[in-house]
Simulated scan of single mutants.
Amino acid sequence: MAIKRKVQLTGRSTYTLSLPRDWIDRLKIEQGDELSILELEDGNLLISKEELTVSREKEVVIDLDEIEDEDLLEKIIISKYLAGYSKTTIRSNKEIPSRISKIVSSIVNNLIGSEIISEGLNHIEIRDLAIHGEFPIDKAVRRAHLIARNMQKIAIESFINSDSDNVSDVFEREDSVDRLYFLIRREITSALENPTILKELNMNSREVLYVYPVAKSLEKIADHSESIAQACLDLQGKKVDKKIGEYLLNYSKEAMEIHTQAILSFLGKRRDLAVKALNVFDALNQKLEDGTLNRERVSDIDVEIQIQFVERNLDRICGYGMDIAEMAIDRIH
């Protein structure tokens, strides 16, 4: 329940505000104690007994002896990174096998800002050395989109030309998108927990909540682009008809235009670009429905299956582009 207090003028220039007695008693605040006051981006003030300008280090210990599955270990390490822990220690009552150490090292290499700073026979210490706000969230979103967009371009061209040589590049880039996605999620979590970090990111709490679904959509676009690259390998050298190649290329270009305009709208806070993305989506659907953009079925069932698989992935990429456009509109209003 909100409590109202009148501002009092003491002397000629000092304004005072009385604090609720139950709050004082609950936090055991006494006369002479110092309180921290932080002005939030929306102009509100945050009053705390704790120091607001300094982030307290979050530490966690993972008991390796309780984890038998290596995939579970990876999920736990990543979850601690996303939760904003600055120090994660993996401990065991036995000597940690070199195989596990290599797995942990590989996981940490995919987490931006994390490093293994200490390693012994029965412990591994991971530190988050990144400085909040050093890599702005908007910049991370822009970078993730650029990589995902290039992945889609390479994947569809590789499929059309049955060129498996460039497919490995798509798989490698997908890891880069994952790293950026994890970084964005961690920054969001830390910002919502600590108003000081929120201020360092130069965003308000409302804006931060819109960033996560956008980052997730970009991660999904990268995943679907990776799936298209995998379809190229599954063709096993079989060629796609030229007309079908042109059809898929045009389909992909339209899908790319949707999420490109949507991201530009989100980052630039431009509603007109979000509307443009929506219009491209509607026009694409109309072309698919009236046959303006279509193809003939392929007699080779194996090739037909892969083409349909690519179509489904392009359809999902369009959907995620629409999700970003909707987030852009919500962020602006």
Rank of each mutant, 00 (worst) to 15 (best):
L111P: 02
S299F: 07
L278P: 00
R21D: 05
F309H: 15
L35Y: 07
D241C: 00
K220N: 15
H132W: 12
R149W: 13
S18F: 10
V54L: 13
L64W: 01
R99L: 13
D178P: 08
S205C: 02
D128A: 07
V303Y: 05
E254L: 05
I221R: 09
A328Q: 02
I160D: 01
K243E: 13
N204S: 03
K58S: 05
E311T: 08
F171D: 09
P97N: 07
N294T: 15
V303P: 04
T14F: 04
L17P: 04
K4Y: 01
L183F: 09
Y85G: 04
E246A: 14
W23S: 03
I116M: 06
F159I: 10
V60L: 09
S299I: 11
K80M: 10
R312D: 14
S162I: 14
H145L: 12
D302M: 15
E70P: 11
N294C: 10
D169M: 05
S79L: 10
N110Q: 11
T16Y: 01
I329S: 12
I228H: 03
D323E: 10
L73R: 01
F135M: 05
S48C: 09
L235F: 12
N44S: 15
S86T: 07
L293K: 06
T260H: 14
L192D: 01
N122C: 09
L72H: 14
E296S: 15
H333W: 03
D22C: 03
N250H: 11
E30N: 14
K139V: 15
K75P: 05
V54G: 03
I67E: 04
V60P: 02
L267E: 00
V60S: 08
